[in-house]
């Protein structure tokens, strides 16, 4: 004992002064110990940033969207619907090739193609965004109800069977045929079929997830259903929801082009990408006028590709499995 006494005394002396102290309870620090510095969104963002092409396209899309919104307010912009007159003849400035005055040329009645393309992009993007949003909201709501509520299961299944069994093209055509051609008609027609896919997907996922142990546990602890859905189930599905939404935009634009093609689209006094492309198709074999087809096609393709690739890489990035 003797040989350690000094040591022990030494330690106990020290400890009395500095070694052990009662710490104050700090709620913030207590909280911190329970969490790593992992943040879902930050990780998603970081792994998204690794895909250079997607980032590049995202910047591109932001610029395009920003530009379509800002374009009318920029200086030296022409109106998309005004018919410009030739100063010498006083007649419409028809089919003028791209020049300093008309950056993308004019169409067959003398309207400025540059501003028409941006106005068209605005219309088409607007349609796409609204459709995507409605699809997401309706699809998720119905999907969750369908998956979660046993009472609603049978009627929704029947509704689903009806809507899903008519080919999308036919529903699109029928709706635009019955309603008048306008932006809202196109949006309604697309929404009628659009939510189905999303709802089915959400439903299937929820059926799989709802009986997992952690949800059972949560339920046993008395968590209300809506909280289970919002906190436990939906975050799981975010990556897929984002993917579907970003794909819905190019799909909606494509559908608008298709409807215009069969003569059920927007009236041509309302510029849209579908209208511009459809007007341009006739000019395919005319080398001098082909620009009227090429410019809108390029804009459409760029937007479609961008959304497509961004959507895919975001879905990858949002998958927690890829975060480690």
């Amino acid at each position: 004992m003797g040989m350690y006494t000094d040591e022990i005394n030494n330690i106990s002396n020290k400890s009395r002064e500095t070694l052990f102290e009662f710490a104050e309870v700090d709620a913030r620090q207590a909280e911190e110990t329970g969490y790593s510095n992992y943040s879902y969104w930050r990780s998603t963002w970081q792994s998204f940033l690794k895909n250079r092409l997607a980032v590049f396209l995202l910047v591109g899309v932001i610029i395009i969207v920003g530009f379509t919104i800002l374009q009318p307010y920029l200086p030296a912009q022409k109106s998309p619907t005004e018919i410009y007159l030739d100063e010498q003849t006083g007649m419409q400035a028809r089919n003028i090739a791209p020049s300093a005055e008309f950056w993308f040329g004019t169409n067959s009645i003398g309207q400025d193609l540059w501003s028409r393309i941006w106005a068209g992009t605005r219309t088409s993007l607007f349609i796409g965004c609204v459709v995507a949003l409605v699809e997401a909201v309706v699809g998720i709501t119905i999907g969750t109800l369908w998956g979660f509520s046993r009472k609603l299961e049978a009627p929704i299944t029947q509704l689903y069977n009806v809507v899903d069994n008519i080919p999308t093209t036919i529903v699109l055509i029928l709706m635009s045929y019955i309603l008048r051609p306008s932006i809202s008609t196109i949006i309604i027609a697309m929404c009628i079929t659009g939510w189905v896919e999303m709802a089915r997907f959400i439903r299937n996922q929820i059926v799989i997830l709802r009986d997992r142990e952690y949800n059972l546990a949560s339920k046993c602890l008395g968590t209300p259903d809506y909280r289970i859905i919002l906190k436990n189930l939906l975050p799981y599905l975010i990556s897929v929801i984002m993917l579907r939404m970003s794909l819905a935009i190019p799909f909606a634009i494509g559908a608008e082009v298709f409807l215009t093609y069969i003569g059920l689209g927007l009236p041509i006094s309302e510029p849209s990408l579908g209208n511009l492309i459809n007007e341009g198709r006739v000019l395919m074999m005319s080398p001098d006028l082909r620009y009227q087809l090429i410019f809108p096609s390029i804009v459409l393709s760029v937007i479609t590709i961008a959304f497509y690739i961004i959507g895919n890489s975001f879905a990858d990035a949002a998958d927690p499995k890829n975060h480690v």
């Binding site: 093609y261 198709r281 459409l300 393709s301």
Partner: peptide, 18 residues
């Protein structure tokens, strides 16, 4: 794949035909 998805069918079908 990206090409087929992005370019409107109405356009590339016509290009092919012509």
């Amino acid at each position: 794949i990206v090409f087929v998805v992005a370019v409107p069918a109405a356009v590339y079908y016509l290009v092919i035909q012509m």
